[in-house]
Design a binder for these strands. Sequence first.
DNA 1: CAACTAACTTGCATATTGCAAGTGATATTT
DNA 2: AAATATCACTTGCAATATGCAAGTTAGTTG
Lengths: 155, 155
Amino acid sequence: MPLKSKPKRRSGCPVSISLEKFGDRWSLLIIRDLMVRGLRTFKEFQESGEGIATNILADRLKKLEAAGIICSEVEETDGRRMNYRLTKKGIDLAPVMLELLIWGARHEQTGAHCAIMAKMEENRAAILAEVRRRWQERDSTPLIPKFGDLNLGRT
Amino acid sequence: MPLKSKPKRRSGCPVSISLEKFGDRWSLLIIRDLMVRGLRTFKEFQESGEGIATNILADRLKKLEAAGIICSEVEETDGRRMNYRLTKKGIDLAPVMLELLIWGARHEQTGAHCAIMAKMEENRAAILAEVRRRWQERDSTPLIPKFGDLNLGRT
DNA sequence: CAACTAACTTGCATATTGCAAGTGATATTT
DNA sequence: AAATATCACTTGCAATATGCAAGTTAGTTG
């Protein structure tokens, strides 16, 4: 079981240690889906549009849970379904995610609308507050349904 | 030459696209070293303390340059030496880096001092301004020499 | 010009990923 | 109640990426 088999910490730098937890091609996409798209289940992540393989998805969910970034519980109304959710530690990645989003939208060809991005840069604090509110109230209606289509305040 | 051989974009999401550029275990560490540790050359990165292999380092430098995040030029005083430097696009990753640093320091066992981290959280804007100033003025004295040992304002 | 150094390459063993198919535990349908 | 479907994974295997040690090349120093 290749889970925590490599405890060799590269350095004491917080950036380095953070990257050991979620510095790969997939982890942050799962976190994004939990944070702003309202996805909760294995199947939903799988069909999220990024094309992650099921074995990798299972592995990342396991690692993120081991790292205390997400947690999981069986859905009451359906015993097969697992519901994943960000922990406090996980939702605290919101600022990282937001800055990543802003950088990408500014410097790469993306599917995000300029006007919306401008608004996000102006209102970082408001957006972060909204993300945290949704997390706390378990409000899983998507904040950013796919990409570029933000619903914040009045649409 | 495995450089831009995989142009399959996973989705139009800015986060996803950003991760395609530097979402691996090493790229952000190189960027960190350029941004706050004042490292410039291949050898310095290699001896940076994280233990990156030379082939991987060469590959990442090539990719980051291809992505427009860093640039390189031959040192005038020594023709063998290449000097790497962040571009504007690269220095714009400072907010991502800072949030990554803050998250890691808060949620993981790291070598960072609490008092300093508290200060960083309070003064995000000032720190970012300082990082940008150093970049603009090509001031490469390290802002964070190793880890946990910050020099900001008066020591 | 001989020794040295910086920045890479190369070869090869190992680890990680992607893909397709399969499994087992519920749930739903007939 | 039996058959079928769904969900969350596993497994096997080929392809890719990584880690490590040992070159190679070009420029520099003595």
